[in-house]
Design a protein around this nucleic acid. Structure first.
Lengths: 330, 330
DNA sequence: CTGTTAGCGCCTTCAT
DNA sequence: ATGAAGGCGCTAACAG
């Protein structure tokens, strides 16, 4: 493998000149530039970026910490991050933690060992078991919840949930079930808060029996739907905390002979691509996943460049999308 | 930032000893080991991995080239890759090319510039515009098609497609439509081949009018379904080349008043999670996406370690899953 | 504009 | 088992 020294020898110029020819060609005479190029081509020289990074003490790499990359929402956020990172000349290291705190630690330590310059964390912040934010580690929390410390990008989960539930109420629903995420998940907490606000705004009493705990995966939505159908006083609508559970719930209700939306209105959260193509199409909250990724990356690069950003908590707009899965109760 | 030299000074030991204490502690006396540890803790020393990699001339990083990470199938493959990579102590750099050949080039050059040791390519190989395989660059093509050169991991697309179509024929269908991917996509080519084989096995004449071109995205499935409903002689079943188009097609048919599967059988390809929760549930080919990722990574690491693997073309088993979207024609 | 020089932080012989 | 010394490939002063 040819090194810069080989190019120097071949071209009869010093390594310093070669280096400059590569980084700031306008500061090298055209004649010499041509000689450098010729030598590079002849030797098929490729600069050793590892050496460059070492020398410059910067990896130009960020790590994206993600609980599970096979979750479409996260994948979209990452896509947004990638777009911005490439524009800035950064690489993104994938930190699929598979929900293991051990793996998460390893990835965090990558910035301590210079392998990465900063971190974007897609795992919602939870008091107590959070590795980030951490002193000396530049990070952004993407898709966070209320009261997340440090730099964050998110939508207003409380408000969005409230809006969904108030819409159901406006249709005439009074008994509205919830398929939640795990009870201690911060998104669950925020979205439940919005649900309660909506009820209280319209003087509907909160009934804890109407909250069925899921885990954001399909299966739990199906199972929760069955739970509802076994209730003595079945609700007329169900607010699901993500689209996956909502789609599975629609199936669960359909299987038990309930028509959606005639017998049961169902709403989701996220607006995955499939939600406008399933049957019936899903009323849901559209999260700007790619935008969240882009904004997070932009914020991280601001932080990385040393400027203190004016705003460190970005609350992005969401959209409430009404489709076929909701209607007035019979 | 403390360096190894600081630890050396603090502990009164040479840098060589510190280095050894970190890499092969069993070769350092317990007494000195303790002193090293004390010094490290006192100074909060973290080895500079950038320097380490530079010195060792290996990045311990692989790049995963993916046309679009917000595609669930790819995301799952990546998840499998990550699992194996972490076990091997490698990082994975995300190469979301967003279908741009320029970006792809950049990522490929990362191994030439030592930023990565090898590449796993999720883009199907197409004669003519393929950057990989390439001399001097260790790579594996994951989820490839027939006749892909170099190291590959895939399922037998032709056989799987044939099986699906023969199943439809066995149900009594004779006029079977296809919603394909883009015509020049290698997966389209392989799967169409299987479709034709099935027809010819059962002496059904191939009718090019029954092939409607899609692009593997939802929208094209919906649009193709509408095309079918406008045909004079509507088919009784449609073989879709992925689940996304199949789910959208089911919606398209339903919207036009056709019942699935009573009036129209629909099959997919991939078996995304949603396919067992949509309504009706989808008959499809289950690709072992995570396994494909794991196998690809294992193969790459074999290649990287310098051993010539006995097998460089891995054909993984798929599963044909029969669900509710198919039945005998009326 | 170009050449010289001195390291970046670490690992690895090679002695001891 | 430990220490001394050299150098990986590159960039960044600094001189000229």
């Amino acid at each position: 493998m040819a090194t810069i020294r080989d190019v120097s020898r071949e071209s009869g110029l010093s390594t310093g000149t070669i280096s400059k020819a590569l980084s700031t060609p306008e500061k090298v005479s055209p004649k010499n530039l041509a000689r450098v190029e010729a030598a590079i081509k002849k030797l098929n020289y490729k600069p050793n970026m590892l050496s460059q990074k070492f020398r410059k003490k910067t990896s130009n790499t960020i790590v994206v910490l993600v609980p599970d990359i096979a979750n479409l929402f996260f994948a979209k956020v990452i896509s947004g991050i990638e777009t911005v990172a490439q524009k800035e000349g950064f690489s993104v290291l994938l930190g699929d933690t598979k929900d293991s705190i051990e793996r998460e630690k390893e990835f965090v330590s990558m910035v301590e060992t210079k392998l990465a310059d900063g971190i974007i964390n897609l795992r919602p912040y939870k008091d107590g078991d959070a590795l980030l934010p951490k002193e000396g580690i530049i990070s952004v929390n993407a898709s966070s919840c209320e009261n997340t410390p440090g730099a964050t990008v998110r939508i207003d989960n409380v408000q969005a949930s409230q809006k969904v539930v108030e819409y159901l109420i406006s249709l005439g629903h009074k008994r509205i079930g919830v398929i939640s995420g795990l009870a201690d998940n911060p998104h669950t907490v925020d979205r439940l808060k919005g649900y309660k606000k909506a009820l209280s705004n319209f003087d509907i009493e909160y009934d804890a029996d109407l909250i069925v705990e899921g885990d954001f995966n399909y299966w739990s939505g199906l199972s929760a739907a069955e739970t509802f159908t076994r209730m003595a006083d079945i609700p007329t609508a169900v607010f699901c905390m993500n689209d996956q559970m909502a789609i599975a719930a629609m199936k669960g209700f359909t299987d038990k002979g309930l028509k959606v939306p005639d017998d049961m209105s169902v709403t989701g959260f996220d607006d995955m691509n499939v939600s406008r193509y399933c049957t019936p199409t899903l009323t849901t909250v559209a999260q700007p996943a790619e935008k969240i990724g882009e904004k997070s990356a932009e914020l991280l690069f601001e932080l990385l460049s040393g400027i203190k950003p004016k705003v460190t908590e970005h609350i992005l707009p969401y959209e409430f999308v009404i489709r076929e899965s909701t209607s007035a109760p019979k």
